[in-house]
Amino acid sequence: MKHACRKVSRLASDALDRKLSPLERLRLHFHLLLCVNCRNFRSSLQRLHETFEHIRSVQAHELKLTKDQRRRLLMELERKLGD
């Protein structure tokens, strides 16, 4: 089964972005039963994916315009719109 790891890593990645076909799911899960490396790879990808989900919600509070950025924006807008 070893030869399939490269392809299975792609399926594990794709599974985060699209719905796999029944055949692809079968291939993925059958391989995962036998291969600890791919199991570990997949679980890491899922953790990474979840981490980004959390970061997204954290950034809703963190990411803000600074006072300086706000001032610069306003000055630019006035300069360009003012005349």
Partner: peptide, 22 residues
């Protein structure tokens, strides 16, 4: 990956909790 498509190195599972990591 090696030429035969198997992993070059052993893959480790992450134990870190995403909620704490973020």
């Amino acid at each position: 990956f090696k030429a035969d498509g198997s992993w070059n190195e052993n893959q480790h599972a992450w134990k870190e909790d995403p909620e704490i990591l973020c």
